[in-house]
């Protein structure tokens, strides 16, 4: 590892963009490492980093960290900062600070069957957990991945979805798009209804979901209907953040700060919080 600015948590370190890959028309993957080699700090699946260009900072879930080689962030163009990020080229220097948040309970899930349910850019945070499971394949049981997006073009990580992940042992990948398209012969419909159609048995399973807040809310309802108890259901939330270290105040849900107490919560924990996410 090069340098983590642990003494001054609000001051970024500098990394360099070593590769940029288009995932969809508005999602781009950025691969970063320190100029002198290595990653600035180690990120666990589900944890986030504050990335910045001179014009501003934003919190992004780390999509994957490959050892000490690089960190990968898949970023959707939604606002001023992400628009600027989408205009940079390989070699650009970025500010980075972190890692922030609790991350997914990868240890506690060992020995379980895993059900990943994602919508749109919501696959970006889950991918870190999915890849972790594949890397430690024998520690986890059956892996089901259910992913949906507005259209075929909007599906992230297509090579993994259609080619790599289905090849992994004891793994099923289900993909759906919101509306029918001439070239698409897969499932059509929203993620929560496809989930209920598939009706995966809750026995010995942990469900992990991320997507637009409205999708998460319906998925949580569907899981409950299908017999998943609260401790079997995990989600990861996001809110606007500035500091990332639980000081600036804005990312609270009740007394919990998403940046330090989250972003990962079980359904049991979510129920104790106000419905303000």
């Amino acid at each position: 590892m090069c340098s983590c600015n642990c003494e001054q948590p609000l001051v970024p370190s500098i990394v360099e963009v070593i590769d940029i890959v288009d995932e969809t028309p508005d999602v781009r993957s950025f691969y970063v490492k320190c100029s002198e080699g290595g990653v600035p700090y180690s990120v666990q699946p589900g944890q986030c980093s504050m990335l910045s260009l001179p014009a501003g900072e934003g919190m992004f879930s780390c999509t994957w960290q490959e050892g000490n080689e690089y960190q990968h962030y898949a970023i959707k163009k939604v606002g001023l900062l992400t628009e600027e990020l989408h205009s940079i080229e390989i070699g650009q220097k970025l500010g980075i600070r972190g890692p922030y948040g609790n991350g997914f309970p990868v240890e506690a899930c060992k020995g379980k069957d895993m059900l990943f349910i994602a919508g749109g850019i919501g696959l970006a945070p889950l991918r870190s957990f999915i890849k972790y499971c594949f890397k430690h394949r024998d520690d986890y049981g059956k892996i089901d991945i259910l992913y949906g997006s507005r259209s075929y073009a909007d599906l992230c990580f297509k090579d993994e979805l259609f080619n790599l992940w289905p090849q992994e042992k004891n793994t099923q990948v289900y993909v759906t798009i919101d509306n029918a398209e001439p070239e698409w012969d897969g499932h059509v419909g929203f993620v929560p209804s496809y989930l209920e159609e598939l009706n995966p048995n809750p026995n010995g399973k942990i469900a992990v979901t991320c997507g637009p807040p409205i999708m998460i809310k319906f998925v949580l309802q569907s899981l409950e209907k299908m017999g998943y108890i609260d401790d079997q259901v995990i989600t990861t939330l996001e809110m606007r953040m500035k500091c990332g270290i639980g000081k600036c105040g804005r990312c609270n849900v009740g007394s919990q700060y998403i940046c330090v107490d989250g972003p990962v919560f079980t359904r049991t924990q979510l129920r104790q919080l106000p419905q303000e996410w």
Binding site: L10, P54, A55, G56, E57, M239, R240, K242, C243, K247, C248, G249, R250, C251
Partner: peptide, 28 residues
Amino acid sequence: CFDIQVKIWGDKGYRFRCWDSCMYTEYT
């Protein structure tokens, strides 16, 4: 509660923090 913002002239500038208010829409 505080905000973090930036001031740049040409190629130089600084990041600063300033008091913010949870009363404002932009806050969240």
